[in-house]
Design a protein around this nucleic acid. Structure first.
Length: 585
RNA sequence: GCGCCCGUAGCUCAGUCGGAUAGAGCACCAGAUUCCUAAUCUGGAGGUCGCAGGUUCGAAUCCUGCCGGGCGCGCCA
């Protein structure tokens, strides 16, 4: 039901027909022929670049080729007008009835409007959040969490088989520090230590209950044991406790991932060895010496041979170490194992959502994925820039005291899940985002969350008014589908249908580009168009949605209002935001 | 020093696998407003798209080189 791809098919068919008739060469490559919305409404409903794309290969002037196509297109029953403009654009105008029928289709499809089979059921893995399980999530994680979650929903709507995944980094030195922190809290609960925690441990009080529970369960039996005796157990306990909290915090944001992959489990299952085996005989792993980084030389730099992966063969700037000096695998090695694991689970499209501070790591993982999958899997790393918290324009203080920070949970509690989710998508992922705790709660046009929600709420208030004016009438979606839409004659009304009709294209474009923020921008535009039409009735009462002496016209306009509601609701649901029926508190 | 990201109106930012006269909100200016639902509305002004080359029918978009900002740069994750 994508108008643009539908008419692209029409144009393609006409090109084919012209080829069959011998009017165009048979070997044209028409893959770059596109049908798009024109920038200027005056240029019509659709614009097509076919003539410019094919002119050279066809040995024709673009405008001559355009005329050839125009002759055919003018015969199409749904096309009311074809113009050739500029260097050879084909500008198409569609019948008003085409748009009215489209509105009927929107109402019939309901929430499924905008669904696409573009993905054709292809499995896609979206890995997001993946924060170290050493403490609660903070605001920085919220952006990646929302981004990843909405991207997953978007891909799902576009027809992909999406898996939402979290990678648990439970194998490195950081979780050992977590284990020691748990032990310290445990000792504290037993009264054996007090005051400030030693350096290198996690001082936040979120481990206090873990220590207490452990003391209550096991008493003092771990107290005087050597670290070797308790480290593994305490580590697992700490990781489990942190992951439980993280999942709980994510749930507060409306996020539920279905697969949690443990780095430790992967390593213990021999997945890193599998990496080595996979590239065996390809001379991709070797023992060598790396050059020290230029410019900023670490003080303790010492040249030494180490096990390296030949990442530079795949576009990385340097080869990368797989083993640490103590002989254990680096994080990079287990990350290769993880990506190989994802590939072996059947994913050829891998999307990772990371913080921008990991940007320097992208090339080596991409190199690894290319090497391990023979170029069969595609990795797209989406980097999310920082979120700056503001309070009415002033930078909010992030740190209350050492060891604490503004957590994701605090943010959600302060402004609500829906606001967090929407605002996080009001910027492209690679642009820094200002999150103003005060302004996101204002009820004004500057606040996009409010503005879009208001459009949805307004659709309900219009329905309530319609029912007041015509108590016996039926303004359900089912009834609206039978409305006499020929009564929609105002150009702004038809324009609103056209804006609605841009939704499927928005979904597909955003899904293809992995850019969920486009949904937020589209919804804002749709809301603006709806509010503008509403506002026109202030000056011209004949444009009101509810027309007291004309039930048929009211019914037709209600169909339009319900079309707007359908798309706003559908878009908000993809964003994980609950559409509201009423804004009055 | 190297790599990645960014640079678009006074401010914050969109800009569709390259498309026609580059858009929106805020701020500013000028009007309207006893209005079905309240959280206003309409219009105006505002641009060498960081700079300079290149690619082509066409460049904010692609390529190269500079300038400016952010992030990162063995044995952390």
């Amino acid at each position: 039901m994508n108008v643009f791809s539908d008419f692209r098919d029409v144009v393609q068919a006409d090109i084919k027909a012209l080829q069959d008739a011998g009017s165009l060469p048979a070997d044209l490559n028409a893959s770059r022929v596109a049908v798009d919305p024109p920038r200027e409404a005056a240029h019509g409903d659709l614009t097509c670049n076919a003539a410019m794309m094919l002119a050279k290969a066809a040995g024709m002037k673009p405008r001559d080729l355009a005329e050839l196509l125009a002759v055919r297109l003018r015969d199409h029953p749904q096309i009311s007008d074809v113009e050739i403009a500029g260097p050879g654009f084909l500008n198409l105008r569609l019948n008003e009835d085409y748009w009215r029928d489209h509105l009927r289709d929107v109402l019939a499809a309901g929430a499924a409007y905008g669904d696409s089979d573009m993905g054709a059921g292809e499995p896609v893995n979206v890995e997001y959040v993946s924060a170290n399980p050493t403490g609660p999530l903070h605001v920085g994680h919220a952006r990646g969490a929302v981004f990843g979650d909405v991207l997953a929903s978007l891909l799902d709507k576009a027809g992909y088989a999406v898996t939402r995944e979290y990678y648990i980094n439970d194998a490195g030195a950081q979780v050992d520090a977590l284990a020691r922190s748990v032990h310290w809290r445990y000792s504290e609960a037993l009264g054996a230590v007090s005051g400030d925690m030693p350096e290198g441990l996690y001082p936040g009080d979120y481990l206090v209950p873990v220590g207490k529970a452990l003391a209550a369960r096991d008493g003092a039996r771990w107290q005087d044991q050597a670290e070797d005796e308790w480290l593994a157990e305490f580590r697992q306990l700490g990781v489990d406790a942190m992951m439980a909290q993280i999942r709980d915090d994510l749930a507060a944001l409306g996020i539920e991932q279905s697969v949690f992959t443990s780095e430790r489990a992967l390593v213990e299952a021999g997945m890193v060895d599998a990496v080595v085996e996979t590239v065996e005989g390809q001379d991709l792993i070797y023992v060598g010496v790396l050059e020290p980084p230029k410019g900023k030389k670490p003080d303790d730099w010492e040249e030494r041979p180490q096990t390296l992966f030949r990442a530079s063969n795949f576009g990385d700037d340097s080869d990368r170490p797989l083993k640490k000096s103590d002989g254990s695998w680096t994080y990079f090695a287990s990350d290769l194992a993880y990506h190989l694991d994802k590939y072996r689970r059947g994913f050829k499209t891998l999307i990772n959502v990371w913080g921008a501070d990991h940007g320097g790591y992208v090339k080596r993982v991409a190199a690894g994925v290319e090497a391990l999958t023979g170029g069969e899997a595609e990795l797209d790393v989406k980097l999310c820039q920082l979120v700056r918290l503001l309070e009415d324009g002033e930078v909010a203080k992030m740190s209350k005291r050492a060891g604490t920070f503004v957590t994701l949970r605090e943010l959600v509690d302060a402004v609500g899940r829906d606001v967090v989710r929407f605002i996080m998508l009001t910027r492209k992922n690679d642009a820094q985002l200002d999150f103003d705790l005060v302004r996101v709660r204002e009820q004004s046009r500057d606040n996009p969350v409010f503005y879009v929600q208001y459009a949805h709420a307004r659709s309900h208030s219009v329905a309530r008014m319609a029912l007041e004016a015509f108590p016996d009438a039926d303004f359900s979606v089912a009834a609206a589908r039978g409305a006499n839409l020929a009564r929609l004659t105002d150009s702004d009304e038809l324009q609103l249908i056209k804006t609605i009709a841009a939704w499927p294209r928005t979904v597909e474009g955003a899904a293809e580009a992995h850019e969920p923020h486009r949904l937020a921008f589209y919804l804002y535009d749709l809301a603006a168009a709806f509010h503008a039409l509403w506002s026109r009735a202030r000056e011209d009462a004949s444009l009101r949605f509810v027309v007291a002496d004309d039930p048929e016209l009211t019914q037709a306009r209600m169909a339009l209002v319900l079309g707007v509601r359908t798309v706003v609701a559908s878009g908000l649901r993809v964003m994980g935001v609950e559409p509201v029926d009423e804004l009055r508190a």
